[in-house]
């Protein structure tokens, strides 16, 4: 690779999910079922009786002021955070715990790791592995976790890079990529595990403005292809255009939930109105 080629503009258009090996099927079953989740950080009751259901192929955007618990909530969905009450099911599996006579006992690390294979996560700060190239970042988990052969993983990895418009950057290290490019690699890395659900925590808020579009474009494409997604974002255009449902959180609670139309045209809650007024 001599890198004479410039990264093309995001030219996706086709199946991101095909690149990862096929879209999930089915339509109406529940993928995420969070029931009455309670979480404390010490004395701080960060999540208070939070319930949320996400159906297959649904895109849910989570809004809310800083500190309202959005990040904490989606980190609970793949058990990066413990919960103290309630249950979270993904694809029918209780996440992170065993239910022993109504009490939650934390599961073994190996079992939790297995559950996480089905749940992709994209972080605000990308968190690419800096000692691995873009392509190596993508094939790491398929080969190490799924036991996929290196050849097959490379094929999947290259296809995914192509889909996110970064075929020319396969051999680049993260430090050689722009923020937008890094985030697109991070999305491809998560997709390589063929997750049933993707979690996004403000995926564009660490990006320079001119790079936000390219990442949102990839996410929109993913949504069109039927990926089930929970997206924490302040990108209202994305919410309007892509979300099936918008959820408003404040002080650790879900205070309002509805279609984008409902949300942006006539929200009922006073706090929602104040929040939207501030950010729109």
């Amino acid at each position: 690779m001599t890198g004479h080629q410039h990264a093309t503009d995001v030219a996706i258009g086709h199946d991101l999910l095909d690149a990862a090996g096929g879209a999930p099927t089915g339509s109406s079953e529940v993928v995420v079922d969070a029931q009455h989740v309670d979480k404390w950080f010490g004395k701080l009751h960060v999540l208070q009786d939070v319930s949320l259901q996400v159906k297959r192929q649904e895109v849910v955007v989570v809004l809310g002021p800083s500190g309202s618990g959005k990040t904490t909530f989606i980190r609970c969905v793949n058990h990066l955070e413990k919960i103290q009450g309630g249950r979270i099911f993904v694809n029918g599996h209780l996440i992170g715990y065993r239910d022993v006579a109504g009490k939650l006992i934390e599961d073994k690390e190996a079992n939790i790791a297995k559950q996480r294979q089905e749940i992709g996560m994209v972080f605000q700060r990308f968190n690419l592995f800096p000692h691995k190239t873009a392509l190596e970042n993508i094939i790491e988990a398929p080969t190490q976790v799924r036991g996929m052969s290196k050849d097959e993983a490379l094929e999947v990895g290259n296809a995914l890079l192509q889909r996110v418009g970064l075929a020319a950057k396969a051999d680049s290290y993260p430090a050689q990529l722009s923020g937008g490019q890094q985030q697109r690699v991070a999305i491809a890395r998560a997709l390589a595990m063929k997750p049933a659900l993707m979690l996004f925590d403000e995926p564009t808020s660490a990006l320079d403005p001119e790079m936000i579009g390219e990442v949102l474009e990839v996410m929109k494409e993913l949504a069109r292809e039927g990926m089930t997604m929970i997206v924490v974002t302040h990108e209202m255009g994305f919410a309007r255009e892509v979300a099936d449902r918008v959820v408003m959180m404040d002080e650790g609670r879900v205070i309002e939930e509805g279609t984008p139309e409902h949300f942006f045209n006539n929200p009922t809650e006073e706090r929602t109105k104040t929040f939207l007024a501030k950010i729109l």
Binding site: N78, L80, E109, A110, A113, K114, Q115, R116, Q117, I119, G120, M121, F123, R125, N127, L128, F129, E140, A141, Q144, V145, A186, R189, A190, M193
Partner: peptide, 15 residues
């Protein structure tokens, strides 16, 4: 964030 990214991909603590 590195450990979290690895975990979120389903990697075990050892890996």
């Amino acid at each position: 964030g590195q450990a979290e990214a690895a975990k979120s991909l389903g990697m075990t603590p050892g890996k």
